[in-house]
């Protein structure tokens, strides 16, 4: 009789290496370039907001797990940290600390744990927190510091390019006239636009996308379908009336499109299962975003679009079930 007991378990006896904590860590790594640039641009404010958001998200998750649900704390899987980071990415860098804490409490408490924790929430928790803040603290949430590379604490505040566009259109300016006063698309791509922490630089976000695709954490379906939809729709309107509608590249590079497409819409829990479902999901987000931006009251609509489509995920899953092997549909011969 050997001293060590043999292990017996049902097959399979091997497992692929990418586990949930590793995936969460991968997402965090993917967010780092954008965070770094943000710190460079917005200075100490960005650091403050991010740290407060992460710490308070983790803290609330720990509290709720330990004292309310009485289960093992799930902070270690890293999902609360991602929620915190995403929440920080979605708010201005000069947001007062208590608002950040309130946002974290809502994101974790209402957005995630009230449904039963990781894997059970229908809506993206960070976006729940963000939208809650946007409605509760509209002034603080829409006054963004100017993107000047400085570590000075009291920078001037201003509006986002999308906000400027909306305001300009409201007072009757034409798009080219407004555009003249704004930086070029190349600047937007590199990251010098006013706005929330994480949505300033297209390049940094795309770097994150490439990393996540390489690690096979996400697939291309959601980001590409969403961005392409926005490009096509805004492009159509732009072709129809360039005086009234901005060009598609402007729409993609400004606001939260890239951040939303790469980090928010691709959240496993709140996106459809199958690739087909993911494409429908991305297209839906794109359409709603464009509708809000062009015809809605808010200058920006990515958060709302994602939350609305989150609600449709169960329905999408229901209608995009995989085809069973051996049940060929008639159309496929």
């Amino acid at each position: 009789m050997s001293t060590t007991l043999l292990t017996v378990a049902p097959s399979p006896h091997i497992h692929q290496e990418l586990t949930v904590p590793q995936i969460m860590r991968g997402v965090i790594y993917a967010m780092l370039p954008a965070l770094a640039l943000s710190v460079y641009v917005f200075g100490i404010g960005a650091v403050n907001v991010t740290v407060i958001a992460i710490v308070s998200c983790a803290f609330f998750e720990y509290l709720i797990c330990t004292y309310l649900l009485k289960t093992k704390s799930s902070v270690a899987d890293g999902s609360a940290i991602i929620t915190g980071m995403l929440l920080a990415f979605n708010v201005p860098s000069n947001l007062p600390w208590y608002i950040v804490v309130i946002g974290s409490a809502v994101a974790i408490g209402i957005g995630k744990m009230s449904f039963g924790g990781l894997g059970n929430n229908p809506f993206n928790p960070a976006l729940v927190g963000r939208v809650f803040l946007l409605i509760s603290f509209p002034v603080q949430m829409t006054s963004w510091p100017e993107p000047v590379a400085s570590w000075s604490i009291d920078g001037a505040t201003g509006a986002t390019p999308l906000g400027l566009l909306k305001d300009g259109l409201r007072v009757g300016d034409t798009v080219p006239a407004i555009m003249n006063e704004m930086p070029s698309n190349v600047d937007f791509l590199l990251g010098f636009q006013g706005g929330s922490l994480g949505e300033m630089s297209g390049v940094a976000l795309i770097l994150g996308l490439i990393y996540m695709l390489y690690r096979k954490i996400i697939t291309w379906h959601i980001p590409i379908s969403m961005v392409v939809t926005i490009f096509i729709l805004t492009g159509l309107f732009w072709l129809i009336n360039p005086e009234k509608y901005a060009d598609p590249v402007f729409h993609i590079l400004t606001g939260g499109v890239l951040l939303g497409a790469i980090f928010m819409a691709t959240d496993y829990v709140t996106s459809p299962f199958t690739h087909k479902g993911m494409l429908i999901f991305g297209v839906g987000i794109g359409i709603i975003t464009v509708l809000i931006r062009l015809f809605g009251a808010y200058p920006e609509g990515v958060s709302f679009a994602i939350l609305i489509m989150n609600a449709f995920v169960p329905l999408i899953n229901r209608y995009t079930k995989p085809r069973r092997f051996g049940n060929k549909p008639v159309t496929n011969g």
Binding site: T7, A9, H15, T19, V20, P21, I23, S74, D77, S79, G117, L118, G119, N120, Y268, V269, T270, S271, P272, F273, T274, H275, K321, P322, R323, R324, F325, G326, N327
Partner: peptide
């Protein structure tokens, strides 16, 4: 030994991997 079990994160990888088209 099997590793620690986490909540289902609804990533859909099992659906994409199933050769029989099941969920």
């Amino acid at each position: 030994k099997r590793s620690e079990v986490y909540n289902c994160v609804r990533c859909g990888k099992c659906i994409e991997a199933c050769p029989m088209g099941l969920e």
